[in-house]
């Protein structure tokens, strides 16, 4: 394992979001915000405001009642490069 500080990536399934705001409130690094856009249900789904802040802790995924967001840890540089392709 490289000693580098782990970084994460957030994924959303915006169409499932009901706009409760839990993920935004409880993100320990305040990396999320409500999107200005609406999904089909009329809810402001979350979007990442600061990708470099995400640690991949998945607090957003755990606290989301709607399975609409989750994050994963990106540990290796190689993996990270692939993920960003």
């Amino acid at each position: 394992m490289p000693a580098k500080r782990p970084r994460g990536k957030v994924h959303t399934a915006a169409e499932r979001c009901k706009g409760c705001g839990f993920c935004i409130e409880f993100c320990p690094l305040k990396a999320l915000r409500a999107s200005g856009a609406l999904n089909r249900g009329g809810f402001h789904f979350p979007e990442i405001v600061a990708p470099e802040k995400c640690s991949g802790c998945n607090m957003c995924g755990m606290i989301c009642p709607d399975f609409a967001i989750w994050s994963e840890k990106l540990v290796r540089e190689k993996d990270e490069a692939e993920a960003e392709d």
Binding site: F22, P65, D66
Partner: peptide, 13 residues
């Protein structure tokens, strides 16, 4: 999905 619970309901959590 989406499930039938209200926005902010904790059952999904």
């Amino acid at each position: 999905l989406p499930h039938m619970w209200c926005p902010g309901c904790g059952i999904g959590i």
